[in-house]
Simulated scan of single mutants.
Amino acid sequence: MGIVPPDTKLTPRPDWVPTWDNLNAEQKKLYAEFMENYAGYFAFTDREVGRLLDAVKQLPDADNTLIIYVVGDNGASGEGGSDGTFNETKSLNGVPTPIEDNL
Rank of each mutant, 00 (worst) to 15 (best):
M1V: 03
G2Y: 02
I3T: 07
V4H: 13
V4T: 15
P6R: 07
D7W: 06
T8S: 04
K9T: 07
K9G: 00
K9W: 00
L10A: 07
T11R: 10
P12N: 03
R13T: 04
D15F: 12
D15K: 13
W16N: 06
W16T: 05
W16E: 06
P18H: 09
P18Q: 05
P18R: 10
T19L: 04
T19S: 09
T19M: 03
W20M: 02
N22A: 11
L23Q: 14
L23R: 15
E26F: 05
E26V: 11
E26I: 09
Q27R: 13
K28A: 03
K29P: 00
K29H: 08
K29F: 11
L30C: 07
Y31N: 07
A32C: 04
F34E: 15
M35H: 13
M35Q: 14
E36H: 14
N37M: 11
A39Q: 14
G40F: 00
G40M: 04
G40C: 02
A43E: 02
T45M: 09
T45D: 06
T45R: 11
R47M: 00
E48R: 13
V49G: 08
G50L: 10
R51D: 08
R51T: 05
R51P: 04
L52N: 04
L53G: 10
A55D: 10
K57I: 00
K57N: 09
K57C: 05
Q58C: 01
Q58P: 01
Q58S: 02
L59C: 09
P60G: 15
D61A: 10
A62C: 14
A62H: 14
D63I: 00
L66D: 07
L66G: 06
I67C: 13
I68S: 13
I68G: 12
I68L: 13
V70G: 06
V70T: 09
V70E: 05
G72F: 01
G72I: 06
D73I: 06
N74T: 10
G75E: 08
G75H: 08
S77D: 04
G80H: 06
G81Y: 02
D83N: 15
D83H: 11
G84C: 02
G84Y: 01
T85V: 01
F86E: 02
F86I: 01
E88S: 13
K90V: 03
L92R: 15
N93V: 09
G94H: 01
P98I: 02
E100K: 15
D101A: 10
N102F: 05
N102R: 14
